[in-house]
């Protein structure tokens, strides 16, 4: 079976999404645990979590953008 470039981009986005999905899951689960242990610090933990999540999911967005630009 032969793949064209467009299909390769789509597969690449999928792979990137797997990576950030795993990373996001780990980050958010730890943040939730921390919030459960220390509900009084929930606001600060949430801020840090959102910033970290933004960095993680940016990687998938870069894959998406590269497909917009080249595809």
């Amino acid at each position: 079976m032969q793949l064209d470039a467009q299909a390769a981009y789509h597969i690449g986005i999928g792979l990137a999404a797997i990576g950030s999905g795993v990373g996001l899951g780990m980050a958010v689960s730890r943040a939730m645990e921390a919030m459960g242990r220390q509900p009084e610090a929930a606001g600060r933990i949430q801020t840090g979590m959102i910033i970290g999540a933004a960095f993680i999911e940016a990687l998938t967005i870069y894959a998406l953008i590269s497909s917009f630009i080249r595809g």
């Binding site: 933004a54 940016a58 967005i61 870069y62 998406l64 953008i65 917009f68």
Partner: peptide, 13 residues
Amino acid sequence: LSLACRLYGNVYG
């Protein structure tokens, strides 16, 4: 660069 690409990619996507 990352600020611009993140916002653009999310909204355009």
